[in-house]
Design a binder for these strands. Structure first.
Lengths: 200, 200
DNA sequence: TTATAGACAAACTAGTTGGTCTGTGCTATT
DNA sequence: AATAGCACAGACCAACTAGTTTGTCTATAA
């Protein structure tokens, strides 16, 4: 409840509730009324903070989804000397941090990508830009590994980085379909086999 | 226009139009009215052939999406002695058979999976069963390759088959986001590197 | 203390959408 | 040739949903 009249907090409550609803039902399936019910707010409050459902969706993407992935998948890569081992560890650690319920609902980034990319150019541009950011971050780590003699010189780091992301997102997608966390780790084991071919 | 009163043809026209709309907008985004406009039919006709939007969706999945993937991705595997080479060829051939527009809209199976799996149990069961069918078909080919001494004995054929599908669907997903067919083939190249590790 | 703008409530609106209902002409069987 | 049922047409409806409008209360600055 906190103090009455706390606009920053209200905005965050809306953002979090909207994220949960989007995660459950997709952006199009997310209902404004569901967000209001969850936050005990009324229409006036929500449309005071966000001009439209679309703007709310963009804010959820930028302020929640992007930030979470940066914290969980991108920043930790720096903690490992060998980027190959780093990525394996991040993959496993991320998988362990979520419960089955989360896996059943899928990766929020993946969900939003597949749903909104073909029908909303604003979402598409943000999503594509973020995937490029992620890909370049991994590619940089791989280049560093190459310079340190840990990774084969002849690989195309950008293409490899893209494939690593693709396989990771695919693992989430399959786990979502099977409603089973194990499918994620099963894909991870095969991804690790691929990753080992990159070692010098 | 064909002859008046051709119920089988009418049913197929509805099915095809619904498939196109689902492919463009997702199942939830597919509008009954859009299907009617596309087929020049009225509500009465559609609801004569299908009891509900959901039933229409199930029929599209079973009679169009499943069949297409079986023809394009599963049956051709039998034409190759070495299943590894077979899968590489199928991946490329499938990619070449579609134009950019198709890639922008994504793999219909992948789309439907990610959209409907968490919110419709009927879809989920059908989709999961089909992925299992596909996985087992690939696993069988891999086993055959093992027996012929083409593929390493120690690999887990089921897990490998799952990863092959995952990577393929992931490649479609990335190409859809980038709106670019090349991303698909880029992922294919790295998948091929993985596949080669399976050779005896 | 008072004016002003921000933060929210609550009722209302207009458009959309899946589905229903009744009717009608065609077609095949007896 | 009569009749029954199939294959549709087309009007209608009820529920839903994003967004609007008007108004009220509160905090802050002058």
């Amino acid at each position: 409840m906190a103090t009455l009249r706390n606009p920053e907090n209200t905005r965050l409550r809306i953002l979090n509730a909207a994220f949960e609803e989007i995660h459950k039902h997709g952006f199009q399936g997310m209902r404004i009324d569901a967000v209001l019910k969850k936050t005990n707010l009324k229409k006036g409050a929500l449309y005071h903070h966000f001009p439209s459902k679309q703007a709310l969706g963009y804010a959820v993407f930028e302020e929640i989804i992007e930030k979470t992935i940066i914290e969980l998948w991108i920043n930790p890569l720096k903690n490992y000397d060998n980027p190959i081992e780093g990525f394996k560890a991040v993959f496993i650690e991320a998988g362990q941090s979520w419960d089955d319920e989360f896996f059943k609902q899928g990766c929020p980034l993946n969900n939003l990508s597949q749903e909104m990319t073909p029908i909303d150019e604003g979402f598409r541009q943000r999503i594509q830009a973020f995937f490029n950011l992620w890909r370049d971050a991994i590619a940089n780590e791989l280049s560093r590994g190459q310079q340190q003699g840990l990774i084969k010189k002849e690989i195309d780091v950008t293409e490899v980085a893209r494939f690593i992301i693709t396989a990771s997102e695919g693992a989430h997608a399959q786990a979502k379909i099977a409603q089973n966390k194990q499918e994620y780790f099963s894909c991870g084991k095969q991804l690790a086999i691929y990753l080992d071919t990159l070692l010098a």
